Amino acid sequence: MLEVALRHRFAADGFSLDAGFTADGAGVTALFGPSGCGKSTILAAVAGLLRPQAGRVVLDGQALLDTATGIFLPPERRRFGVVFQEARLFPHLSVETNLRYGERRAPRGATGPGFEEVVALLGIGHLLARRPAGLSGGERQRVALGRALLARPRLLLMDEPLAALDTTRRAEVLPFLARLRDAARLPILYVTHALDEVDALADRLVLLEAGRVLAEGGVEALTARTDLPLAARRDAGVLVGCTVLAHDAARGLTRLGFGGGELLVPLRPEPPGSRLRLRLRARDVAVATEAPRSLSMQNVLPATLEAIAPTGTPHELFLRLAVGPTPLLARVTRDSAERLGLLPGQMLWALVKSVAFGLPAPASSRDGPPS
């Protein structure tokens, strides 16, 4: 487990950081928030690239930083792998030699994926003879990930590794990051301000604002909260963990199972049994007070209205719904809520178009079946 508690001010009237959180012994903890909230500062302090004025960084019981007792382990002794926005590959070396450099830095006896496994994992076998100048941005980042992983670090730190890539290249690299997450089986601290990266990769979320931690916890739980800045976004919604149950190619649909029942979504390529996580945006959920009939919407889910909350917009409200054990959010006008006479505890039907679902992201292989 990683434990972090940091305090630092850059100048008398400059940016002030006062943040603390924990991260599990495996999986991705995302530091998320707007630019300037302190994400990269925290990462630099954890890596040993910044010596904060006060704080502690502890990994698996070993203090790497403790200003109270004078402990400060230098970066090279922390055994952390760091991946930045720019790949920072050695330009005069081939891809293979760049990877072997990381491999040579691995301590004797350290466990982790070997060279061939990493190359296959990241799909870079055909690039081994090339030099970085002959690679696309996405390919360079995959090589940088491989080099960091081959050093067999205790902790992998990623500072917005996809921020310098265009939309196409980001979509190319995200699946490889998900595969790396599951294969590496080590803690990953991931800095981003892109919500789709959180959706695709994060197991745990640390939400930051102005150098402070607003909330931390499981990513699915935090996306369902209406009291956090996430809810102020127009794409606000919950993440729902699902399992692919079956495909109906003739109808162009895939049937997914989740804790509250089943969903029909546009045909997916994943085989039955695959785990997915998809974002269901609050603005794409409608409600009915009676069982609807003759609708084009494929998904009609019995739900309980748990709470009605403000959205920050005067004429709109959030409805927090429970579909079995799974929370959903619906964004409706205040007029609709009053016209329907909505009250907490009321039984409703949640209505969702099949095409409303965002692109599902691979869930961690550690996930069990939906509960």
Rank of each mutant, 00 (worst) to 15 (best):
E86W: 12
K353H: 07
L165H: 02
L343H: 15
N98A: 10
A30T: 00
G312T: 12
D18W: 08
P74R: 00
V143N: 03
Y101E: 00
Y190F: 13
E338P: 03
F32P: 01
P229C: 06
I188K: 01
E216A: 12
K39F: 07
S274Y: 05
A144R: 07
R339K: 13
L162A: 02
L321S: 01
Y101N: 08
G55E: 09
A45G: 10
R88N: 06
L201Y: 08
V332T: 02
A309P: 06
A144N: 09
L189R: 05
P132N: 09
L128H: 13
V28Y: 02
W349I: 03
G20R: 07
P325R: 07
R366V: 14
R251D: 13
R320A: 10
P344V: 10
L205N: 09
I42T: 11
R204C: 08
T313N: 14
L348T: 11
T289I: 09
S296T: 08
V219I: 10
F21W: 02
K39Y: 01
F90M: 13
V191C: 05
E209P: 13
P187D: 09
L73R: 14
A202E: 07
E96T: 06
V83I: 03
E306M: 09
V95F: 00
P271R: 01
G55C: 06
R251C: 12
A47K: 11
T67N: 00
G125I: 10
F15A: 01
R142S: 05
F115Q: 03
P344A: 11
A44F: 12
P362I: 03
V82W: 02
A200P: 03
A282Y: 07
G36C: 03
C37R: 00
S354Y: 11
L145H: 04
